[in-house]
Amino acid sequence: MNETWVVVVRSLIAFFSLHIFARVLGKQSIGQLTFFDYVLGITVGSIAATLSVDLSSRAWPHWVGLFTWTVVVVIMEFLTIHSKHFTKYVLGEPCLLIMDGQIMEQTMKKNRYSLSDLLAQLRDKDVFDLNQVAFAILETNGKLSVLLKPEYQTTTCQDMKIKTSPAQIPRKLIFCGMILEENLIALNLSKEWLFTYLKNQRIKDIQDVFLLSVDSEGAFYCDLYQDHLQKGM
C-alpha cells in the first residue's frame, strides 16, 4: 500500500476519534477555557497529529494516549461537579481585584497580575475609568468580571418601567427562496398572506428573496439576492 493511503486512513482514525472525544469532553467554548484546558487542547491535538502522520510509530499507543487524556479529563470534570473542595483545590477560586472601588494590591501580587493587565481587561469590557468600577473579579479562567457603580450602569427597560413583549427569536419565513411552512403555521400566517406581503413589497418572485424574517415585535426583515447598493459606498 502506498504511504499516502496509510496517512489518509490514520488521519481519518485520528479525526473521527478526536471528534468523538471532543464531544465527550463537553461544550466549553474557547472563551471559557482555563489555562489547563488550553494546555490540554494543545496536548491532545499534538497526540492526534502524531497519530495521523508519524508512520515511524504504531497508531495504537497514540490512540491510547488520546483515550487516556480524555478519560482523565472526564473524571476530573465529574469530580469538580460533585465536590466543591476538589473544584477549589484544582481550579482555585475567583479573586476580588477591585472591592468598593479599591484596588486589592496584595491579591494582584498573589495572582501575578499587573496593573496594566487589569487596565487592559477593563478596557476590553469598555471600562476606561477606574472610578466607574465597584467590583472586579478575576475568574478562574483568567477573565475579568466587572460590576460598575450603580450610577454608571446601563439603564434597562425595567428601570424605565417600559413594557416589553416577551423575548423571542426572529422566525424565518423565507430562506434561500424557499418558504418555511412550519414557521408560517406557528405564526398563524398563510401562504396567501405571504404572497400578498411580497406583492406589496414589489417582489415578483419568491426565488428573489434570500431572507424574510419576523421578530417578536412583528417587524419584518427582508433581504433580496439582488443588492441595490449606492455607487461609491
Binding site: M1, E3, V6, V9, R10, L55, S56, S57, R58, A59, W60
Partner: peptide, 11 residues
Amino acid sequence: SPRLQLAAEKD
C-alpha cells in the same frame, strides 16, 4: 507487508 502497513511501525 502491505497488509501490515496500517497498524505496524514503518521502521
